[in-house]
């Protein structure tokens, strides 16, 4: 058995990391398509506030962070949907106010700087059973939500007004998406840390969008890139003695570069094929560029 599997903490890290790798891009796809990538960053700062309050009040920090992120996500969505504040302005208000509260709470207390460091940069190697249970329950809820409301989520991602005229309850869908994103951010925070949580939600999705042609393919590819990033990142961190969170996030960036390279290679091959057809004066049979994976075709 490889050395990496001989330690309990690594097994727990792999299980927790894998669950988060499924959770984060599942939501990330809908968030990126709705151009709300910044919401992950905002909610991670809200989570930091929750962690700080949890430490000061001696409450389970992840649980306080979960309450803070889900309620803030609902608040952001309400402000945005009622048009009180534009989407990005509502995010900025929540980001900076929660960061300010976190700074004040941290400055008024002492003794948990080392723990706080772990939350900022990820503590996947010290993830405990309670964390695993919390992430596991979230995973079940999120998978059920995305699978059940797949039609509503894809309609809203395509166009909110079109979704409304199709009969989708857009406001309720957006609210549920925001609240569960808050929960996902909290879960992901344990793996890659508050400062990098957005990366796990956004970057595997960008890699998937570079290659996927259909929605289901994009969802599966994003999860696939997330899982690969966590597994490779953890292995690299273990053997090279690096910070696990940083290694995972850097691996997502490598995945994105890889997806870009594959995409360009496909485009190059297709353009060569079309040029070949043109040279043979066979313009009518030249197919249009067809550069994406085709897993959604019947």
């Amino acid at each position: 058995m490889p050395e990496i599997f001989q330690f309990d903490f690594m097994i727990r890290a792999l299980i927790g990391g894998s669950m988060v790798a499924i959770l984060a891009p599942s939501f990330g796809l809908f968030i990126v398509l709705r151009r709300l990538s910044l919401i992950a960053d905002t909610l991670s700062h809200v989570a930091l506030m929750g962690v700080a309050i949890g430490f000061v009040t001696s409450t389970y920090p992840t649980f306080v962070a979960l309450l803070a992120t889900t309620s803030s996500a609902a608040g952001i969505e309400q402000l945005r949907s009622r048009g009180r504040l534009p989407g990005d302005a509502a995010l900025a208000v929540f980001l900076y106010s929660s960061l300010a509260i976190a700074v004040i709470v941290i400055s008024k207390s002492s003794g948990f700087n080392a723990d706080l460091f772990g939350y900022l940069f990820g503590t996947v190697l010290s993830i405990n059973d309670r964390d695993l249970w919390l992430i596991g329950i979230l995973l079940v809820v999120v998978v059920l939500f995305v699978a059940s409301f797949y039609a509503e989520l894809t309609q809203s991602a395509f166009d909110q007004d079109l979704a409304h005229v199709s009969g989708v309850r857009v406001t309720a869908t957006n609210l549920a998406l925001a609240v569960l994103t808050g929960a996902t951010v909290t879960a992901s925070m344990r793996v890659v840390g508050v400062l990098m949580v957005g990366a796990l939600i956004v970057i595997p999705v960008l890699a998937a969008l570079r290659l996927a042609r259909g929605f289901r393919t994009a969802l599966l590819l994003a999860i696939g890139f997330g899982l690969l990033s966590v597994w490779i990142g953890l292995a690299v961190a273990f053997y090279a003695d690096l910070a696990a969170g940083g290694a995972i996030v850097l691996t997502t960036v490598v995945m994105l570069a890889l997806a870009e390279a594959i995409g360009r290679l496909q485009e190059y091959v297709v353009s060569r094929r079309i040029r070949g057809s043109t040279d043979r004066s066979d313009l009518e049979t030249a197919r249009p560029p067809d550069v994406a994976l085709d897993a959604d075709k019947d």
Partner: peptide, 24 residues
């Protein structure tokens, strides 16, 4: 359409299929 312009991952058929939405 809001979603177009950022590599929206859907075939024409998937988009047309959206028009058949009849509730949850």
């Amino acid at each position: 359409v809001e979603g177009l312009g950022i590599r929206f991952p859907a075939t024409v058929e998937e988009i047309v299929e959206q028009g058949r939405y009849r509730g949850f």
